[in-house]
């Protein structure tokens, strides 16, 4: 079987800023045509990885190839094959959306006519037609982000970098950006996106690398990482403290594993694999037993919990050394 080529390969990337080690040896491999998520808290090194892979920063050590070209030695070739959407929507806020796209098109080497045609095509594709002469600075956050995406898609690059593309967006704009990313991936674009949100990586990425303190502490599919973090939980909060133990027993039976009890919160919870089955079973049994329930629900593990499992520490606390490989 032919192994698909990798769109992004990084080996042992290191970078120091003054006394701080931003990257302590990052390895990364993203198969062509897939969406890969770099997940990690603020300051983990996600942006530095993106800046190295997009030729903005030279690594102190290690090497990286993007779209088959070395980022240090063949920077110009890499730049002709990538799109970058940085943390703040990097568009000219005085010019209109169309003026922005025509300008970027010209700078990508398109002639005036091709740049105008491309701009109109992208405005249409990213639902920005009809914004007329409005300066991009007056766009909503979601519109500006879409313009930013459109500008990075002028050459339909094979590899697209998105650095926290939905930070600061409202839920609707966030969903719109997700739709665009999915559409691009369907079209064959390789996407590397950084995010602080497990949910975002979960929804978009086929592969995830979790970064903390400049190291990859886990890689795998979203499913594999979540099961490593304990998967979903069923949590029950009872009204009557006297019946908490009974409720815990019911939850444990439904989940098939031991339930954790929090006597202060009057809650009992357990990780589940068959999410809906376990919840239904727990609700039915609690009802039959006549236990008054204040709250019951399925809860997905949060990024904090993933980190807790992976590192033995919360985000921001020192991580355990070494890389954990989660089987896909």
């Amino acid at each position: 079987m032919r192994v698909p080529p990798s769109a992004i390969v990084a080996e042992g990337l290191r970078k120091r800023y003054g006394g701080t080690e931003a990257l302590a040896g990052i390895d990364l491999e993203v198969p062509a045509g897939t969406v890969h998520g770099l997940l990690g808290p603020n300051g983990a090194g996600k942006t530095t990885v993106v800046r190295i892979l997009t030729t903005l920063v030279r690594p102190d050590g290690g090497r990286a190839e993007v779209a088959g070209h070395d980022v240090a030695r063949e920077a110009a070739r890499v730049r002709a094959r990538i799109g970058l959407v940085g943390q703040n929507a990097a568009v000219d806020e005085v010019l209109s959306g169309r003026q922005n796209l025509v300008m970027f098109g010209r700078l990508y080497g398109l002639d005036a006519r091709a740049a105008r045609l491309r701009a109109d095509g992208l405005l249409d594709r990213f639902r920005l037609t009809g914004t007329g002469g409005t300066p991009a600075g007056k766009y909503s956050g979601g519109m500006r982000r879409r313009l930013d995406l459109a500008a990075s898609m002028i050459l339909a690059p094979p590899v697209l970098f998105l650095d926290e593309p939905t930070t600061g967006l409202d839920p609707r704009s966030r969903a719109e950006v997700w739709d665009e990313v999915r559409a691009l991936a369907r079209g064959g674009t390789t996407v590397l996106l950084t995010t602080q949100y497990l949910e975002e990586a979960d929804r978009l990425a086929e592969g995830i690398s979790v970064i903390d303190h400049g190291r990859v502490i886990a890689t795998g599919t979203p499913e594999a990482l979540k099961s490593r973090a304990g998967g979903d939980r069923v949590d029950v909060v009872v009204r009557d403290a006297a019946r908490l133990d009974e409720a815990a027993a019911i939850v444990a039976r439904a989940a098939g594993v031991h339930a954790a009890v929090d006597r202060d919160a009057l809650s009992a919870g357990a990780p589940v694999t068959d999410r809906v089955g376990a919840l239904t079973e727990a609700v039915r049994a609690l009802d039959e037993a006549g236990i008054a329930v204040a709250d019951i629900g399925l809860r997905r593990p949060t990024l904090d919990e993933v980190f807790l499992r992976l590192t033995g520490a919360g985000p921001g606390e020192p991580a355990a050394a070494g890389t954990a490989e989660v089987p896909a």
């Binding site: 997009t54 030729t55 903005l56 110009a76 730049r79 002709a80 990538i82 970058l84 940085g86 943390q87 703040n88 929507a89 990097a90 568009v91 000219d92 806020e93 970027f104 700078l107 990508y108 080497g109 500008a151």
Partner: peptide
């Protein structure tokens, strides 16, 4: 500050421009 310079620098344009 707006990241426009970074966008230019990551593009295959003449950096002198």
């Amino acid at each position: 500050a707006k990241g426009v310079t970074d966008r230019f620098r990551a593009m295959p344009m003449a950096s002198s421009a």
